[in-house]
């Protein structure tokens, strides 16, 4: 008897859930791009570096984090990023929260079972259940804790490095860096255009969701919602298809013929050498210690 109402309730919650979740996602992403742009514009330590130096240095750190066989070394590498973030005017609270509260939510759930004996057998750290008949045994094991710690620490530190790179580098300069690092022109050009379209599409999608929220009074069924979603993706597509057509014409009108030209005004200074050498030395040292 209780089956039916529960089911209906669940369906309703899911219907609202998908809507609010998506709208939340869209708004958050839009705000995030604005926020990142704002920090990247500040006059901080990492902001002043050449994007190529920053990119290569970040890669060296990522590889070191990834290769290290020692939890302490990974933790040390992470702690090193904290003063860097502070010197680059990245709000500390945001920096730490973004990584350790939001990001590994997924990883946390994945790492959790690894703590326990059925998944990672070994010396018990804390025995939870130990019955002889029937044979039931559950413990948090030492290797389990080590395994979970490796995963969480590695993911968290890697994401931190990526977040730091992203928050302190303007998209434009990163594109320039990629170009001078010999990526195919077509690729970099597509990257640039995509970023621009993402912004247009995010805005359009956000508006569609907000418009629907203000218009629709009653709850809609799952099927109605799915149809609406398909139509919105379709509308987004049609709008942007026409837009992309015109954008191409506008590019052509101003001389674009399939290859792109840029004026390289990136400047490699002494600070960049210092940073690159520094991060390479730290990465190598980390690998040596954490062998």
């Amino acid at each position: 008897m209780s089956q039916i109402p529960t089911k209906a309730k669940r369906g309703r919650r899911a219907a609202r859930g998908f809507f609010e979740k998506t709208l939340g996602h869209l708004t958050e992403t839009l705000e995030h791009t604005l926020f990142a742009e704002e920090i990247a514009r500040q006059d901080g330590m990492l902001q002043s570096l050449d994007p190529r130096a920053k990119l290569l240095g970040a890669l060296a750190l990522l590889i070191a984090i990834s290769l290290s066989h020692s939890l302490l070394v990974i933790a040390a590498l992470y702690i090193l990023t904290l003063p860097l973030a502070a010197a680059s005017r990245v709000p500390m609270g945001y920096y730490i929260k973004r990584v350790w509260v939001f990001m590994p939510f997924f990883t946390g759930i994945i790492a959790l079972p690894a703590l326990f004996s059925p998944f990672t057998p070994g010396e018990p750290l804390l025995t939870l259940i130990d019955l002889t008949s029937p044979r039931v045994y559950l413990a948090i094991t030492v290797p389990g804790v080590v395994t979970a710690a490796f995963l969480l620490l590695r993911v968290g530190s890697s994401v931190s490095v990526a977040v730091l790179l992203m928050l302190t580098t303007r998209w434009v300069t990163l594109l320039k860096a990629l170009r001078t690092l010999r990526l195919p022109q077509a690729f970099v050009l597509i990257l640039g255009i995509t970023y621009r379209y993402i912004y247009v599409l995010l805005h359009a999608a956000n508006n569609m969701f907000i418009a629907r929220r203000s218009r629709v009074m009653r709850r809609m069924s799952g099927a109605e919602n799915r149809r609406w979603l398909a139509a919105s993706i379709g509308t987004l597509f049609t709008k942007s298809y026409a837009l992309s057509d015109d954008v191409y014409l506008a590019m052509q009108s101003r001389g674009f013929r399939g290859d792109s030209h840029v004026m390289g005004n990136l400047e490699w200074r002494r600070a960049d050498w210092l940073w690159l050498t520094g991060s390479l030395v730290i990465a190598t040292a980390a690998l040596w210690v954490g062998r």
Partner: peptide, 24 residues
């Protein structure tokens, strides 16, 4: 173009303004 959104495809205003002479 009528819609400036169509015409502005570069990452910065500077890139936008230099696009035509550079590509020509």
């Amino acid at each position: 173009f009528q819609d400036p959104d169509v015409q502005l495809f570069s990452p910065t205003v500077w890139d936008e303004v230099t696009f035509a002479p550079l590509h020509l």
